[in-house]
Amino acid sequence: MRPGNVFQLDTAAFLANRRGLIIRLGFTMLLGLPFVIIAMPLKIRLSGLSFIIIFVTFFGAAVSSVRRKTEGHYERLKVLPLPLWIIQMDMMLAGALVDFIQTGFLLVLFIAFYGTGITFGAILEISGLFITTLLLFNALGMMLACLMKNNSEVHLFGALGAFILAFISGLMPAPAVIQKWIVIIGRWNPLTAMGRSLMGTAQGQMGGIHDAGVFWGLMTLIFLIIVFIRLFEGRSLNAFS
C-alpha cells in the first residue's frame, strides 16, 4: 500500500506490523472473552466490556499519541503542508478504526450470544453509539497526550483518566450523592447509552427504529463516509504496489 494521507499512513503502519496486530487483537480477546463466555450477571458482563473499550480507546490513544510525540512522528508531520486539524482528525480516525477492529468483535459476539429480538433499529443505535464512543474517547486520549511529556506521565494520568471515565460511565458503584451526577453525565456519555442499549438487547426490550436509532445510524453513516473518503483519497489503481 502507498499511503497518500495521514489516515492511510497510520492505518498502513498498523496493518504492516503483524506482530503488533496479533498482540493487540489477542490481548483484547484475552481480556474480553471471559466477559462474553463465562457465566456472570449481565451488569458485570457489560461493565467488563465497557471497561475494555475505555482502556483500548482512551488509554491506547493517550499512550500512542505520547509515543508519536516523543519519537518525533508528530513533528515530522507538522513540517508538511497539511492543516494541523487534518493531521489530528486523520490520527483520530485511524485510531478509532483500529479500536473498532480490536473491540468490535467482542460486541458482535455479545450480541450474537445474548441478543434477543435484534432489530435493525437496535443495530443502528448500538453501532452509532459504539462509533461515537470510539471517536470521543480517542479524542480525549489525544487531548490528555497533549499535556503529557513522556511515557511515565501518560501511563500514570492515563490510568487515572481511565478510572475516572469508568466511574462517570457508571461502571463502578458510587455513593448516592454522586450517583445523581453520574446519571446526568450519563445522558451525554455514549458509552453509558451503549451499555443501556446492549442491556436492552439482551433483555429483548429494544424495539424497531425510533428517533435515537435514526440519529446514531446517521452518525455511523457519516463516520463510514469520512473513513471511505480518507481511505481512498488520492488513490488510483497504480497507487497500490
Binding site: M1, R2, P3, G4, N5, Q8, L9, A12, A13, A16, N17, G20, E71, G72, H73, E75, R76, V79, L80, P81, L82, G234, S241
Partner: peptide, 30 residues
Amino acid sequence: LGKIGCVMDKSIHWEDLSGWENAWFFAKTY
C-alpha cells in the same frame, strides 16, 4: 511548508512501512 523540504536532526520514519512507502507518502503530501 509546501514549498520547502525539511531534513530534521533526527530521521523519523514509520518503521513498519517500507522506505518506498514512506517516501511515497511525503511526495504525495507535496
